[in-house]
Simulated scan of single mutants.
Amino acid sequence: MPEQMTELHQAAAVGDYDLVEDILKRNKCSPNQKDIDWNNKTPLHWAAAKGQTEIVRILIENGAQPSLTTDNGWTPAHFAAESGKLPVLRYLHSVSAPIDMEDCYGNRPVRIAKIYGHTDCVQFLERAKTECREHRRTVLLKGPPPNDI
């Protein structure tokens, strides 16, 4: 059966922290479930797009993978960049989530932020680019740290 939008997707999108927490505690739904009706968005994609930083945090702490992409290759960082959600981008970067991956058309979140005129996000993503590159190099050489996602 194809996967569809769940109660967790909806709670993440509207910012209902208590409901998200309850669903995750009861293991009622995988935080990585993709919704085929909405381009394979996960609850994390929805929370990032809506600027729900605390929900992004609790989803990641409960196993949501920030590297999962939609059918066009967008990560949660692409959605945060499109909406101008700098606190979400900062949080994603703080947990070494991929904030500079290319989508299916070669666009990185920084380009998406430029298109939508989110100058603060562009500046942050430009500064973070070097750190992202260094993190990937370290992981390739040494392997991920024990708590890496």
Rank of each mutant, 00 (worst) to 15 (best):
Q4N: 09
P145N: 13
E61S: 06
N147P: 00
V122F: 10
T119R: 15
H93W: 11
G51F: 06
M101D: 06
C104Y: 07
C132G: 12
T53G: 02
V56E: 01
A80R: 07
I23M: 04
A49S: 12
W38I: 12
K85V: 06
S83T: 13
D103R: 12
L59Y: 02
S30I: 08
P145W: 14
T69Y: 06
G84W: 07
V14F: 13
E21D: 14
L8Q: 03
L141H: 12
L89F: 04
A13L: 15
V56W: 02
V20G: 01
P66R: 13
G73N: 09
V56Y: 01
W74L: 09
E7I: 08
K25R: 15
H135L: 10
G51Q: 09
I60S: 03
V56P: 02
L125C: 06
L59N: 03
T42R: 05
T42Y: 04
G63S: 05
A77V: 06
P87N: 08
F79E: 08
A64W: 09
A12S: 15
P146Q: 05
L125G: 05
E134W: 13
E3Q: 14
K114C: 02
L24V: 01
V14G: 06
L140R: 15
P2C: 10
A47F: 03
G73L: 12
L19F: 02
E3N: 14
H135V: 11
D16H: 05
F79I: 01
R111V: 08
D71L: 11
R26T: 11
S30A: 08
E3M: 13
I115P: 00
T42Q: 08
K142E: 03
L92E: 03
D103I: 08
L68W: 10
E102R: 14
E61I: 04
R57G: 01
P2Y: 15
T69N: 05
P66G: 07
D148H: 03
A97T: 04
L125S: 03
P43F: 02
V20H: 01
Q123M: 10
L8I: 02
S96Y: 11
K142D: 00
N147E: 07
Q33V: 15
A81T: 04
D100P: 00
P76H: 14
R137V: 09
E134Q: 13
E61G: 01
L92P: 00
R57N: 01
L125F: 04
C29Y: 13
N27C: 08
G73I: 13
P144N: 11
A80V: 05
M5V: 15
A97R: 06
A113R: 05
N32C: 11
D37A: 14
L24R: 02
A11S: 06
C121L: 08
N107L: 12
I99A: 04
C104G: 07
E82L: 09
D18Q: 14
T6M: 10
G143T: 03
M1S: 13
T53M: 09
G143K: 03
G63K: 03
I149W: 05
C121V: 10
D71I: 15
K129D: 03
Y91S: 04
L68R: 14
Y105S: 11
E3L: 12
R90D: 01
